[in-house]
Simulated assay, not measured.
Amino acid sequence: MKNYLFLVAGSAIALSACVSAQAGEDKMSEKAAAELAKYEKTGETQTCLSTSRIRSIDPIDDLNFLVHMNNRDVYLNKVSGKCHGASRVGNRLQYTITANQLCRNEIITVVDNSLNTTVGSCGLNSFEELRELPEEPAEE
């Protein structure tokens, strides 16, 4: 009976550690929160974006990417999983597409430029359109 209780307690501790680790991964970084505070979510999503219209993809942390379009539209992509190293200086994002669109479920690979090696990867989710908030006037 004692062995059974130890096994149950050990399983509960392991499960608790897994849940805590996952919750930590899903938590938005302070940098991402500050960057996203400049925008409001419109609730409108796109499954795909035309690559000819994408100006840049800027990871603000390993879970949140801002996609800036040529027409000044901005989209948020909360990637599935953690895209290790995506926001680190000196790394680049790489992806392969079959059409002229970047779509949900495409895999993004993070490459260390100095070593030319893969350091992480993740899957894209839908692109949520953001609207830039007007800047608040500085207090005098």
Rank of each mutant, 00 (worst) to 15 (best):
S80H: 12
V74R: 06
H68E: 13
C48R: 02
D62M: 05
S52Q: 05
E30T: 13
Q46A: 15
S80L: 12
A32L: 04
F65R: 05
C83G: 13
K27G: 03
A99T: 15
N71K: 12
T96F: 09
T51N: 07
T96K: 14
K38Y: 01
N64W: 01
L76N: 03
S16P: 00
S20A: 14
V89L: 11
H68I: 06
S11T: 10
R55W: 04
I54Q: 03
T47D: 11
V89D: 14
A17D: 05
L63A: 10
R88V: 14
D61H: 04
G24H: 09
K31T: 14
E40P: 00
S52T: 09
R72M: 11
D61M: 09
K78N: 13
C48P: 06
C48F: 08
S87Q: 08
N100C: 01
G24L: 07
A86V: 10
C103K: 08
L63W: 00
M69L: 15
K82N: 11
S16N: 07
V67C: 01
I57K: 04
I97Q: 09
H84K: 14
A21G: 02
K31H: 11
A17S: 10
A17K: 08
L15D: 01
L49C: 01
M69G: 13
A23C: 05
V79R: 08
A99E: 15
T42M: 06
L93C: 08
I13D: 02
Y75D: 06
V19N: 03
S11H: 02
R72Q: 15
E106D: 15
R72K: 15
K82E: 14
T42W: 07
Q22G: 00
R104K: 15
K31S: 13
Y75S: 01
D61K: 03
I60W: 06
K82Y: 04
L63I: 08
T98Y: 11
A14F: 13
Q101M: 14
C103F: 04
R72A: 14
S56G: 05
N91V: 09
L49Y: 00
C83E: 04
K78I: 09
L49R: 00
E25T: 07
L63H: 10
R72G: 03
N77T: 12
A33G: 07
P59Y: 03
L102E: 00
T47S: 11
S29Q: 09
S80V: 06
G81K: 13
G90D: 07
P59G: 10
S50L: 11
S29L: 07
H68K: 15
E44N: 12
Q94W: 06
V19R: 03
S20L: 12
Q46F: 01
T45Q: 10
V19S: 04
S50I: 02
P59W: 01
D58Y: 01
A86H: 10
H68A: 13
K27M: 10
I57D: 02
D62L: 03
A86R: 08
V79H: 01
N77L: 08
V67Y: 05
S11N: 05
Y39N: 02
K41T: 12
E106Y: 14
T51D: 05
N71H: 06
T47V: 11
S29W: 09
T45P: 01
L36Q: 06
S50V: 02
S20Q: 10
R88K: 15
E40D: 14
N64Y: 03
L93R: 07
